[in-house]
């Protein structure tokens, strides 16, 4: 058993220098991760720190240099208390994201399950669903939307919009109407998610399905009891991916607002103002990610929980049997004693 060293002993203890091999190994390790460290410092930590510093300043960028005027939280108060644009756009964004993320993820899951079936031309179908990811960039998407290709022509959008607007408040009805109006566009966003689901579906052990089938489980039951619980971590991953994609998309009105603010000529706006919007926006995006994470992070495995519950019930049952046995034994002894007394 190792002895715990006192502070004095620790101090007095001679420092053991690492050997040459250990040093070399450490250097190799550092060399291998240094590209990431340098990259993260240059392209993540530094820009983040700079953009936060920008958000506290009013900045003018001129050919003769950058001029910073420290305004503290001035940009944030301007955005939230004076200008109306960002809060309004943000409200629209939050509602539309919360509405469209489940639609995209569920659609991706459905397509992934279908593509996982043993069908002819499976590869071609997979390619078709992944094509939008490769082809559809921001400008192309913009052009397609402008041509009216973003909605399903067979759906009577106007009727849905009217129905939604009659039953719900305008602020909630609008994002839902938008969802139907841009149904195709939204579904185009699901290429990567389909791929992620597909890879996780292929990892599920086939023997589990066979066992379930032997026990008389239907396809429906297999989906709920085997498929869904197994791919649950991927649902969260896809939700996060979808939120990030929607939030940083070229079509996103807040991204447009940030860009416009960057290049605006008004005194209040510019890089500082745009950075402040970006920080506020990131915070909200993180909150939405957190919201979905709360809904999908499984604290414990459902089956482990059920097994534990069953074991507990079984133990309780055993205890009950023992108790009943002991009680019966007691009663029997008592009866014997009483009979003996009578005799």
């Amino acid at each position: 058993m190792s002895k715990k060293l006192s502070k004095e002993e620790k101090k007095n203890r001679k420092k053991v220098k690492p050997g040459r091999l250990a040093k070399r190994e450490a250097m190799v390790g550092i060399a291998f991760i240094s590209p990431w460290i340098i990259g993260a410092l240059m392209f993540l930590v530094y820009p983040l720190a700079m953009s936060f510093w920008y958000s506290l300043n009013n900045i003018r960028i001129t050919p003769l240099g950058q001029f910073f005027n420290y305004v503290g939280i001035g940009n944030f108060t301007q955005i939230l208390m004076v200008d109306t644009e960002f809060p309004l756009e943000l409200a629209d964004y939050v509602i539309s994201t919360i509405v469209s993320v489940p639609v995209i993820v569920v659609f991706a899951l459905m397509i992934a399950i279908m593509l996982n079936q043993d069908i002819k031309g499976r590869g071609v179908f997979r390619l078709i669903f992944f094509l939008p990811v490769i082809i559809v960039s921001g400008p192309i998407l913009g052009m397609l939307n402008a041509e009216g290709a973003g909605s399903v022509t067979a759906i009577d959008i106007q009727a849905i919009t009217n129905a939604v607007e009659e039953t719900l408040p305008k602020s909630i009805a609008e994002p839902i109407s938008d969802l139907f109006e841009n149904m195709i566009t939204i579904l185009w966003y699901s290429g990567v998610q389909i791929l992620i689901f597909l890879s996780s579906l292929q990892k599920i052990d086939r023997s589990m399905y066979e066992a379930a089938k032997i026990d008389g489980g239907s396809g429906w039951e297999c989906f709920w009891k085997i498929t869904l619980p197994t791919i649950k971590p991927m649902i969260l991953l896809n939700c996060v991916y979808t939120i990030v994609y929607i939030s940083n998309n070229d079509q996103n009105a807040i991204i447009e607002l940030i860009k416009n603010s960057m290049f605006s000529g008004t005194k209040e706006k510019g890089y500082g103002y745009a950075s402040a919007i970006a920080w506020l926006y990131s915070f909200v995006v993180l909150l939405i990610v957190g919201l979905f994470a709360l809904a999908f992070i499984a604290k414990k495995d459902v089956y482990a929980k059920q097994v534990k519950k069953a074991k507990k019930a079984h133990k309780k049952e055993l205890r009950e049997i023992k108790r009943v046995g002991r009680r019966s034994a007691r009663h029997a002894k008592k009866r014997e004693r009483e009979q003996a007394k009578q005799h």
Binding site: R60, I61, T62, P63, F263, S264, G265, T266
Partner: peptide, 26 residues
């Protein structure tokens, strides 16, 4: 503006939005 920010300001420019050009003292 990205060019200006990175110190590669052109010598001669065209512009159509005067506010953009003037606010940045281009």
């Amino acid at each position: 503006l990205s060019l200006v920010n990175s110190g590669d300001t052109p010598d001669v420019i065209m512009f159509s939005d005067a506010d953009f050009a003037l606010s940045n003292s281009l």
